[in-house]
């Protein structure tokens, strides 16, 4: 416990507000009828997650979260919603898995994971070998993890070409059919 009107206390207030933003975003993303609102909720949730990364002393990952998730993934999903024109308003009707079953599954998962996290004795590392700054991340990426770094660029290249091929193939066929 810390006093409210100090730097640390006000930081705690901001932190709780960011937890609220994350949870509200997740609720909006999973429970709204319209998909475009779900995408907006996902963006709100990711903004909260980026703030949590900042509190976890990794501003670089927070910036990347904003750029990649809020800036790229959400916008891509908005484009897909625009192009695919989903039918609205038949939220889980006629599906035996929807409703109480899905809520029960979520509650059981949350309860199990939270109980596991609280009951385990976490032991911190005896010594820390660096401070986790951007410089250290860059060094690790280009020495220890250089192979993974190259492989993920390959994965992204394959993803770009694959999505182009998939979208393009459908387009040429509908043009020849019409």
């Amino acid at each position: 416990m810390v006093p409210l009107f100090t730097a640390e206390g006000l930081t705690s207030v901001v932190f709780m507000a960011m937890i609220g933003v994350t949870v509200v975003g997740a609720i909006i993303a999973t429970n709204t009828e319209r998909l475009i609102r779900a995408v907006a909720g996902l963006a709100i949730c990711f903004i909260g997650v980026a703030a949590l990364y900042y509190f976890l002393q990794s501003p670089f990952v927070a910036v990347m979260e904003m750029l990649i998730y809020v800036g790229a993934v959400c916008v891509t999903i908005v484009f897909a919603v625009m192009l695919a024109d989903p039918e609205e308003g038949q939220h889980g009707k006629g599906n035996i898995l929807a409703g109480p079953f899905s809520i029960g599954l979520g509650v059981i998962l949350f309860w199990g994971l939270a109980a596991l996290a609280l009951k385990t004795e976490w032991t911190p590392a005896a010594s820390v070998i660096n401070n986790g700054s951007v410089v250290e991340i860059g060094k690790s990426l280009l020495t220890t993890y250089s192979m993974v770094f190259e492989l993920i660029s390959l994965v992204l290249l394959v993803a770009i070409i694959g999505s182009l091929v998939l979208a393009r193939a459908g387009r040429t066929r509908t043009e020849t059919e019409s």
Binding site: A26, V49, S102
Partner: peptide, 22 residues
Amino acid sequence: LILGALLFAFGFYGLVQRRTLI
């Protein structure tokens, strides 16, 4: 950890309950 578990549970809940692929 609890917040991560909460997001995971929300994701699973939505994955089961949503009808559209998006």
